[in-house]
């Protein structure tokens, strides 16, 4: 092995990389939040009696689950330009991940909704709640309890997906910052192994926080 590892420049760049971690978590959180909202809407659309809504939701879900996430990010970044919609790398990455999240979460939510007895909503209605009220106050809280762990898994996957921002030229998240440092020094292995460690720590920290949060949220 005729290679001298240089770790000092990586340590010096650590603050920049940590700032990149913050952006990474931001993108993942944003994409998950949008994904949850869109996923609930898709799950409701998929099961609705309205044929158009059900068809559109089904098309989104199947398209999102049967094409690569990277492809969806490319579509947001390069493809939307044809409609005169020029997204920044940040927006395209977030939109791509959110789109992907929504399609996978929609199926999770659909399964979760089926696990809630229909009598729950009916009981709420008979107590005088309106349809939306019953959904918001009775069905949704129970749904989130069922799908909490799948959501946290999806969020971890979102963190890992943010690294794809590299391919659309994002230079502020962890992977992007690392790549910027890499092209200046060509210490690819050193920089990216530290980035890998940071991604690992982010993923583990998220799991830990979600477990602790679950204990607090689902005490009863």
């Amino acid at each position: 092995m005729h290679y001298n590892f240089h770790w000092r420049p990586v340590l010096q760049a650590l603050p920049q990389m940590l700032a990149g971690c913050v952006v990474t978590v931001e993108i993942a959180a944003l994409a998950t939040a949008i994904g949850i909202a869109a996923g609930v809407a898709l799950a409701l659309g998929r099961t609705s009696a309205n044929r158009t809504a059900a068809g559109l939701a089904l098309a989104w879900i199947e398209f999102g689950r049967n094409t690569p996430g990277l492809f969806q990010i490319y579509l947001a970044y390069f493809g939307l330009g044809s409609f005169g919609l020029h997204l920044s790398s940040f927006a395209a990455l977030t939109a791509g991940i959110a789109f992907n999240n929504a399609s996978y979460l929609a199926e999770t939510f659909r399964g979760g909704l089926r696990a809630i007895p229909a009598t729950q909503a009916r009981a709420a209605r008979s107590l005088g709640m309106s349809g939306p009220q019953a959904f918001r106050l009775i069905v949704l809280p129970q749904l989130f309890r069922i799908v909490y762990y799948p959501i946290t898994n999806q969020m971890t996957l979102s963190v890992l997906m943010t690294a794809l921002g590299l391919t659309v030229g994002l230079d502020t998240d962890l992977a992007g910052v690392t790549q910027q440092l890499n092209v200046l020094t060509y210490r690819t292995f050193e920089y990216f192994s530290v980035a890998a460690l940071l991604y690992y720590l982010i993923a583990k920290a998220m799991m830990l926080v979600s477990r602790l949060l679950a204990r607090r949220l689902f005490r009863y």
């Binding site: 092995m1 005729h2 290679y3 971890t156 890992l160 997906m161 943010t162 690294a163 794809l164 590299l166 391919t167 992977a175 690819t188 292995f189 990216f192 192994s193 980035a195 890998a196 991604y199 690992y200 993923a203 583990k204």
Partner: peptide
């Protein structure tokens, strides 16, 4: 678990950089 907690793209870059180091 490490392979499932590090982005695949980063793994590809790392192995691509590490293989020549090993000769």
């Amino acid at each position: 678990d490490v392979f499932r907690s590090v982005p695949l793209l980063i793994q590809i870059i790392l192995v691509n950089a590490f293989a020549p180091i090993l000769g």
